[in-house]
Amino acid sequence: MHIFANPARFLKIARPLTPWLGWSGGLLIVAALAVGLFASPADYLQGESVRILYVHVPAAWLGMGGWTGLAIASFMQLVWRHPLAAVAARAIAVPGAAFTAICLITGALWGKPTWGTYWQWDARLTSMLILLFLYIAFIALDDAERERGGEGRITAIFGLVGAVNIPIIHYSVEYWNTLHQGQSISFLRGSSSIDASMLWPLLASALGFTLLFGAVVLMRMRAALARQKVEARLRRM
Protein backbone atom coordinates (compact mmCIF):
# COMPACT_ATOMS: atom_id res chain seq x y z
CA MET A 1 0.00 0.00 0.00
CA HIS A 2 2.87 2.31 0.73
CA ILE A 3 4.65 1.55 -2.52
CA PHE A 4 3.13 4.66 -4.04
CA ALA A 5 3.63 6.79 -0.93
CA ASN A 6 6.73 8.27 -2.53
CA PRO A 7 5.63 10.84 -5.14
CA ALA A 8 8.80 10.31 -7.19
CA ARG A 9 8.12 6.59 -7.44
CA PHE A 10 4.48 7.29 -8.25
CA LEU A 11 5.45 9.68 -11.05
CA LYS A 12 7.83 7.11 -12.53
CA ILE A 13 4.82 4.85 -13.09
CA ALA A 14 2.20 7.53 -13.74
CA ARG A 15 4.12 9.30 -16.53
CA PRO A 16 4.18 6.39 -19.03
CA LEU A 17 0.80 5.07 -17.82
CA THR A 18 -1.12 8.28 -18.60
CA PRO A 19 -0.93 8.15 -22.43
CA TRP A 20 -1.49 4.36 -22.42
CA LEU A 21 -4.69 4.65 -20.42
CA GLY A 22 -5.83 7.69 -22.38
CA TRP A 23 -5.33 6.28 -25.86
CA SER A 24 -6.61 2.77 -25.13
CA GLY A 25 -9.64 4.23 -23.36
CA GLY A 26 -10.35 6.71 -26.13
CA LEU A 27 -10.08 4.12 -28.90
CA LEU A 28 -12.25 1.64 -27.00
CA ILE A 29 -14.92 4.31 -26.43
CA VAL A 30 -14.99 5.26 -30.13
CA ALA A 31 -15.27 1.60 -31.17
CA ALA A 32 -17.92 0.73 -28.58
CA LEU A 33 -20.05 3.79 -29.31
CA ALA A 34 -19.80 3.18 -33.08
CA VAL A 35 -21.18 -0.33 -32.49
CA GLY A 36 -23.74 1.09 -30.06
CA LEU A 37 -24.94 3.73 -32.52
CA PHE A 38 -24.93 1.79 -35.76
CA ALA A 39 -24.41 -1.95 -35.33
CA SER A 40 -26.37 -2.90 -32.23
CA PRO A 41 -30.09 -3.68 -32.45
CA ALA A 42 -32.94 -1.42 -31.33
CA ASP A 43 -34.87 -2.49 -28.24
CA TYR A 44 -38.19 -4.35 -28.55
CA LEU A 45 -39.96 -1.67 -26.48
CA GLN A 46 -37.78 1.45 -26.31
CA GLY A 47 -36.80 1.34 -29.96
CA GLU A 48 -33.74 3.34 -30.96
CA SER A 49 -33.49 5.37 -27.75
CA VAL A 50 -31.93 2.34 -26.01
CA ARG A 51 -28.65 3.55 -27.61
CA ILE A 52 -28.45 6.26 -24.95
CA LEU A 53 -27.73 3.37 -22.56
CA TYR A 54 -24.16 3.07 -23.93
CA VAL A 55 -23.23 6.52 -22.59
CA HIS A 56 -25.66 6.82 -19.66
CA VAL A 57 -24.74 3.62 -17.79
CA PRO A 58 -20.91 4.05 -17.96
CA ALA A 59 -21.35 7.66 -16.78
CA ALA A 60 -23.49 6.47 -13.86
CA TRP A 61 -20.96 3.78 -12.89
CA LEU A 62 -18.09 6.29 -13.03
CA GLY A 63 -20.02 8.88 -11.01
CA MET A 64 -20.63 6.29 -8.28
CA GLY A 65 -17.26 4.53 -8.63
CA GLY A 66 -15.57 7.93 -8.52
CA TRP A 67 -16.96 8.72 -5.09
CA THR A 68 -16.10 5.22 -3.90
CA GLY A 69 -12.48 5.84 -4.89
CA LEU A 70 -12.60 9.31 -3.37
CA ALA A 71 -13.87 7.86 -0.08
CA ILE A 72 -11.18 5.16 -0.01
CA ALA A 73 -8.50 7.81 -0.65
CA SER A 74 -10.00 10.00 2.08
CA PHE A 75 -9.93 7.04 4.46
CA MET A 76 -6.26 6.37 3.69
CA GLN A 77 -5.47 10.03 4.15
CA LEU A 78 -7.13 10.12 7.58
CA VAL A 79 -5.76 6.84 8.93
CA TRP A 80 -2.32 6.49 7.44
CA ARG A 81 -1.63 10.14 6.50
CA HIS A 82 -0.76 8.79 3.07
CA PRO A 83 0.77 11.78 1.24
CA LEU A 84 -0.71 10.90 -2.15
CA ALA A 85 -4.19 10.05 -0.88
CA ALA A 86 -5.36 13.65 -0.58
CA VAL A 87 -3.97 14.39 -4.05
CA ALA A 88 -5.86 11.38 -5.44
CA ALA A 89 -9.17 12.30 -3.77
CA ARG A 90 -8.97 15.83 -5.18
CA ALA A 91 -8.05 14.52 -8.62
CA ILE A 92 -11.13 12.28 -8.70
CA ALA A 93 -13.63 14.97 -7.67
CA VAL A 94 -13.86 16.96 -10.93
CA PRO A 95 -14.09 14.01 -13.38
CA GLY A 96 -16.51 12.31 -10.97
CA ALA A 97 -18.74 15.37 -10.93
CA ALA A 98 -18.50 15.64 -14.74
CA PHE A 99 -19.64 12.05 -15.29
CA THR A 100 -22.43 12.38 -12.72
CA ALA A 101 -23.69 15.42 -14.63
CA ILE A 102 -23.41 13.52 -17.93
CA CYS A 103 -25.38 10.67 -16.35
CA LEU A 104 -28.17 13.01 -15.25
CA ILE A 105 -28.39 14.82 -18.62
CA THR A 106 -28.31 11.66 -20.76
CA GLY A 107 -30.81 10.07 -18.35
CA ALA A 108 -33.20 12.97 -18.88
CA LEU A 109 -32.75 12.63 -22.65
CA TRP A 110 -33.61 8.93 -22.34
CA GLY A 111 -36.51 9.54 -19.97
CA LYS A 112 -38.39 11.89 -22.30
CA PRO A 113 -38.97 9.40 -25.14
CA THR A 114 -39.26 6.38 -22.82
CA TRP A 115 -41.17 7.50 -19.72
CA GLY A 116 -42.67 10.64 -21.19
CA THR A 117 -40.84 13.01 -18.81
CA TYR A 118 -37.36 14.53 -18.46
CA TRP A 119 -37.35 14.53 -14.69
CA GLN A 120 -39.28 13.05 -11.77
CA TRP A 121 -38.37 13.16 -8.09
CA ASP A 122 -38.08 9.41 -7.64
CA ALA A 123 -35.55 7.88 -5.26
CA ARG A 124 -32.95 6.93 -7.91
CA LEU A 125 -32.99 10.23 -9.75
CA THR A 126 -32.98 12.28 -6.56
CA SER A 127 -30.13 10.34 -4.91
CA MET A 128 -28.06 10.72 -8.11
CA LEU A 129 -28.69 14.48 -8.08
CA ILE A 130 -27.57 14.53 -4.44
CA LEU A 131 -24.33 12.82 -5.56
CA LEU A 132 -23.70 15.70 -7.96
CA PHE A 133 -24.28 18.21 -5.14
CA LEU A 134 -21.90 16.22 -2.91
CA TYR A 135 -19.19 16.43 -5.58
CA ILE A 136 -19.71 20.19 -5.93
CA ALA A 137 -19.61 20.62 -2.13
CA PHE A 138 -16.42 18.52 -1.94
CA ILE A 139 -14.72 20.65 -4.59
CA ALA A 140 -15.79 23.90 -2.87
CA LEU A 141 -14.75 22.63 0.56
CA ASP A 142 -11.39 21.48 -0.79
CA ASP A 143 -10.74 24.88 -2.40
CA ALA A 144 -11.68 26.73 0.79
CA GLU A 145 -9.58 24.52 3.03
CA ARG A 146 -6.52 24.70 0.81
CA GLU A 147 -6.79 28.47 0.63
CA ARG A 148 -6.53 28.57 4.41
CA GLY A 149 -3.52 26.26 4.21
CA GLY A 150 -5.25 23.35 5.94
CA GLU A 151 -4.29 19.72 5.60
CA GLY A 152 -7.58 18.83 3.97
CA ARG A 153 -8.78 16.75 6.88
CA ILE A 154 -12.30 18.25 6.95
CA THR A 155 -12.58 17.62 3.21
CA ALA A 156 -11.48 14.01 3.74
CA ILE A 157 -14.08 13.47 6.48
CA PHE A 158 -16.71 14.90 4.15
CA GLY A 159 -15.56 12.54 1.39
CA LEU A 160 -15.86 9.58 3.72
CA VAL A 161 -19.27 10.48 5.15
CA GLY A 162 -20.66 11.30 1.70
CA ALA A 163 -20.01 7.69 0.70
CA VAL A 164 -23.21 6.59 2.47
CA ASN A 165 -25.06 7.96 -0.56
CA ILE A 166 -23.48 5.30 -2.81
CA PRO A 167 -25.36 2.29 -1.35
CA ILE A 168 -28.50 4.43 -1.22
CA ILE A 169 -28.23 5.08 -4.98
CA HIS A 170 -27.51 1.43 -5.64
CA TYR A 171 -30.38 0.00 -3.61
CA SER A 172 -32.89 2.82 -4.26
CA VAL A 173 -34.52 0.91 -7.12
CA GLU A 174 -35.01 -2.19 -4.97
CA TYR A 175 -35.94 -0.55 -1.69
CA TRP A 176 -38.43 2.05 -2.94
CA ASN A 177 -41.02 2.05 -5.69
CA THR A 178 -39.25 4.09 -8.32
CA LEU A 179 -39.97 5.18 -11.85
CA HIS A 180 -36.43 4.12 -12.71
CA GLN A 181 -36.25 0.43 -13.60
CA GLY A 182 -34.44 -2.08 -11.40
CA GLN A 183 -30.88 -3.09 -12.03
CA SER A 184 -30.24 -5.19 -15.12
CA ILE A 185 -26.69 -6.28 -14.42
CA SER A 186 -25.57 -7.95 -11.21
CA PHE A 187 -21.82 -8.40 -10.99
CA LEU A 188 -22.20 -10.31 -7.73
CA ARG A 189 -24.49 -12.92 -9.24
CA GLY A 190 -22.94 -12.60 -12.67
CA SER A 191 -26.36 -12.24 -14.26
CA SER A 192 -27.79 -9.75 -16.73
CA SER A 193 -31.19 -9.12 -18.27
CA ILE A 194 -29.64 -7.26 -21.18
CA ASP A 195 -29.37 -9.21 -24.42
CA ALA A 196 -25.77 -10.11 -25.37
CA SER A 197 -25.94 -7.99 -28.54
CA MET A 198 -26.44 -4.90 -26.33
CA LEU A 199 -24.40 -6.03 -23.31
CA TRP A 200 -21.04 -6.26 -25.12
CA PRO A 201 -20.99 -2.72 -26.50
CA LEU A 202 -22.16 -1.52 -23.08
CA LEU A 203 -19.35 -3.28 -21.20
CA ALA A 204 -16.76 -2.20 -23.80
CA SER A 205 -17.94 1.39 -23.50
CA ALA A 206 -17.82 1.18 -19.69
CA LEU A 207 -14.27 -0.21 -19.80
CA GLY A 208 -13.19 2.50 -22.24
CA PHE A 209 -14.64 5.31 -20.14
CA THR A 210 -13.05 3.78 -17.02
CA LEU A 211 -9.59 3.73 -18.65
CA LEU A 212 -10.04 7.33 -19.78
CA PHE A 213 -11.22 8.27 -16.27
CA GLY A 214 -8.01 6.74 -14.91
CA ALA A 215 -5.96 8.79 -17.37
CA VAL A 216 -7.73 12.00 -16.33
CA VAL A 217 -7.15 11.23 -12.64
CA LEU A 218 -3.44 10.62 -13.32
CA MET A 219 -3.20 13.88 -15.28
CA ARG A 220 -4.80 15.82 -12.45
CA MET A 221 -2.58 14.13 -9.85
CA ARG A 222 0.55 14.94 -11.88
CA ALA A 223 -0.61 18.56 -12.22
CA ALA A 224 -1.20 18.79 -8.46
CA LEU A 225 2.21 17.28 -7.64
CA ALA A 226 3.97 19.65 -10.05
CA ARG A 227 2.14 22.60 -8.50
CA GLN A 228 3.16 21.43 -5.02
CA LYS A 229 6.77 21.28 -6.16
CA VAL A 230 6.61 24.83 -7.53
CA GLU A 231 4.99 26.16 -4.36
CA ALA A 232 7.55 24.45 -2.13
CA ARG A 233 10.39 25.91 -4.22
CA LEU A 234 8.92 29.42 -4.18
CA ARG A 235 8.60 29.28 -0.40
CA ARG A 236 12.28 28.44 -0.04
CA MET A 237 13.41 31.28 -2.28
Binding site: E48, I52, P113
Partner: peptide
Amino acid sequence: FILAAYAVT
Protein backbone atom coordinates in the same frame (compact mmCIF):
# COMPACT_ATOMS: atom_id res chain seq x y z
CA PHE B 1 -32.53 12.60 -28.17
CA ILE B 2 -29.85 10.03 -28.97
CA LEU B 3 -27.66 12.53 -30.83
CA ALA B 4 -28.12 15.12 -28.05
CA ALA B 5 -27.06 12.54 -25.42
CA TYR B 6 -23.97 11.52 -27.42
CA ALA B 7 -23.10 15.16 -28.08
CA VAL B 8 -23.28 16.00 -24.36
CA THR B 9 -21.15 12.98 -23.48
